[in-house]
Nucleic acid binder design. Structure first.
Lengths: 132, 132
DNA sequence: ACTATTACTATTATATTAATAGTAATTGAT
DNA sequence: ATCAATTACTATTAATATAATAGTAATAGT
């Protein structure tokens, strides 16, 4: 997502290129990227000169969007996501605790946009090293 | 821990009793309780009329203490716990993000004491139902 | 000696995540 | 039409973590 953000507006980037830059197997990245597309955060063009690109501007995507697309619900325990999952939920202090912690986490992630996230990296890394 | 907090100062409680009340296998609880002892949060007395009891007052134990004893580090990713674990750590925005989220979570957990936690349950549950 | 308890170690089962592999569908270029 | 480059989808394997069970040893009171 960072790669796509850094090259937003430059047309589709293909997966192999992202995988090479980030040094991860492209087949594995292929698995990871699909849910991001399902969540509507990115779009794809198939065939020659195809690739992936962001569906929205990087400052309109939050890290909560990204993490949720990749990991599913941000709830740290199942009973927060699905109250019926555990018979104790109604009077369970653990449920309340994890519910508070999960909400906390969600709001932290929501407060950071993909743009901010990507800029941070850009500032830290000289282009000369990064774009090999 | 909640059970021990609710009966703080009443002498040791034995594991089988806690397991029965919380409806979990006592052998399993035996596994879980050991790290709490190692972390110094509870003490044990062996032999007949033995059992477990809190090492400190319930308001001197935070939920961070408890969760850390049970789960190890609160870091959501390994690179936050052990910066050397990943070669990207130095200029990795993900590292910074998860570091922020982890710290956030830790401070939430630290702000809640075991006493508060246990009181909450007590208020929610009539004793008549609870102490079967 | 006996009983009730914690302490420790090992094992099994289950679920999750990471990683790999192969094939199908799509698109552009020749 | 064919070929090459790409995403899409499904299946499989491997590795790891967690949940749960089991058995034995150590300890302490009666």
């Amino acid at each position: 997502m960072m790669e796509l953000a850094l090259h937003y507006g430059e047309g589709p980037i293909y997966l192999k290129e992202i995988a090479r830059r980030q040094n991860i197997p492209d087949k594995y990245l292929g698995n990871l990227i699909l849910p991001l597309k399902t969540a509507g955060l990115i779009r794809a063009e198939r065939g020659a000169h195809g690739g992936y690109y962001l569906a929205r501007k990087p400052d309109e995507i939050t890290m909560k969007d990204v993490v949720e697309a990749l990991e599913g619900s941000l709830s740290l325990v199942e009973c927060v996501e699905t109250p019926g999952a555990c018979s104790r939920s109604a009077d369970c202090p653990s449920h309340d605790l994890w519910s508070a912690v999960s909400e906390n986490m969600a709001s932290t992630l929501q407060s950071i946009t993909l743009k901010q996230f990507a800029e941070k990296h850009k500032n830290k890394t000289p282009e000369s090293i990064y774009y090999i």
